[in-house]
Structures are given as C-alpha cells and as structure tokens.
Simulated scan of single mutants.
Amino acid sequence: MSIADIKKIADDKMHKSIEAFKNELAKIRTGRAHPGILDQVHVEYYGSMVPLSQVANLTLIDARTIGVQPWEKGMGAKIEKAIRESDLGLNPAAQGDLLRVPMPPLTEERRKELTKVVRSAGEDAKVAVRNLRRDANEHAKRLLKDKEITEDDERRSEGDIQKLTDKTIAEIDKLVQSKETEILAV
C-alpha cells in the first residue's frame, strides 16, 4: 500500500461519512413533508417486520401532507398503527384506501430540540471523520516503520490527510448550519 492509496481510501471513506450524514439530516423533519421521514417506520407483513416503502407507495399530496397508498387492501390499518406508534409524532388519517399523513407545524420548543439533534448528529459525523484521519495516519506510520516510506513522506501525508479532514469537517459544519436555518425558519 502506498501513501496515495492511503489518501484515496481516507478520501472515499470521508465522502461516505458525509453522505451518511446527509441521509441522517434528511430524516429530521422540518415541518415540510418528505417521504424519507417514513423510512424508519416498519410494518408487520406476513409475520416479519418490513420497511413501509416495501408495502406501500409513498407520495407527496402537498407541502405538508404525505400520501401512503398500501399495495394490499388489508394493510391500511397495520400501516396506520405503525406510523402512529413510531416516535415521529405523526397522526395518519384514513381516506378510503389512501392514508393521509399531515405534518404538524413545529413549535418553537420542538425547533430548538431539533437543532440540538442536528448538532449532535454533526458532532457524531465529525468524530467519524477524525477516526478516519487517525486510521490513515496509523497506516502511514506503519509504512514508515516497515521502511517503505521516508519520514518526510510520512509527515507530508499527515499534512495532506489533515487538510482533507479540515475540508470534510468544514463541509459537515456547513450542512449543520443550513439544516438549523431550515428548521428555525417559520
């Protein structure tokens, strides 16, 4: 393994950390309806728990309402119960076969709680990136110990990995800031 390989692997993993963080942020609701909010809801389907998206079609009816159309007739009540029992604070209403899931407006207190959740998720993402930096630096030290690279190469790689880490953390901070702005907008 060379220094270029170490940098490439660290870059790829840090990019994946940012993508995972973006997915985490998408699950945090902001008052606007988004079908991804229901991704964590699981429904009992013939004895096993499956994600809601595997038993129903999720659509946006309007900016504040998600439509859930079950693919089988008898699933409506089970889906309604699963959404109600999830910790999302949603209250679906049946309209024939279609379930309407209105997004309740966020209170000021709830908005502040959500910003804390966003900051916490951002901190977790930063910790993951710092762990990737540590792993990459350990790989470089191992190469130095095995006399495959010089001390200058090892120091230069640490500097490059630090620059990559700083860039990734700055991107995470920017994502946290934009999500907080989105949540606090009334």
Rank of each mutant, 00 (worst) to 15 (best):
L132M: 05
R155S: 14
T165S: 12
R100C: 04
Q162N: 13
L144H: 10
T107A: 00
L106H: 06
V117N: 06
V101M: 11
P92G: 09
D160T: 13
V127G: 08
A136P: 03
A94Q: 14
P92S: 09
E148S: 11
R134M: 06
L98W: 04
D152R: 03
E148T: 10
H139C: 10
N137H: 03
A136S: 08
K126L: 03
D146E: 15
V117R: 02
L99F: 09
I149P: 00
E154G: 04
E108P: 03
D124N: 15
L132R: 04
R119G: 10
D135T: 12
G159R: 11
K116Y: 00
M103D: 08
R130A: 10
E123P: 02
K167P: 05
D152K: 07
D152P: 01
P105F: 08
Q95V: 09
R100M: 12
E151V: 11
K112Y: 09
E151Y: 05
L98D: 02
E113T: 06
S157T: 13
D166T: 02
I161D: 11
I149E: 02
R110C: 00
R110G: 01
K126M: 10
K126W: 00
R130V: 07
K163L: 13
E138V: 01
T150P: 07
E113S: 06
Q95K: 13
G96E: 03
R110Q: 06
R119S: 13
G122S: 06
E158R: 14
P105W: 02
V118M: 01
N131M: 10
Q162Y: 07
L164F: 08
A128T: 12
M103T: 07
D153G: 03
Q162V: 08
R156S: 13
R110D: 04
K163Q: 15
L106S: 04
D146L: 15
N137D: 07
E138P: 05
A125R: 04
A140P: 09
E154W: 10
L106W: 08
V117T: 07
L143M: 15
R156H: 14
M103A: 06
A128D: 13
Q95R: 12
I149T: 04
K141E: 07
V118C: 01
P102A: 02
A94V: 11
E138T: 06
A125P: 03
A140N: 05
Q162F: 09
S157K: 09
L144A: 14
A140F: 05
K141C: 00
R134F: 10
T107L: 01
G159W: 11
E109V: 10
K126Y: 02
T107N: 04
E154N: 14
T115G: 02
D160G: 13
K141Y: 02
N137S: 04
P102Y: 04
E158H: 15
L114M: 09
T107W: 02
S120A: 13
K167Q: 15
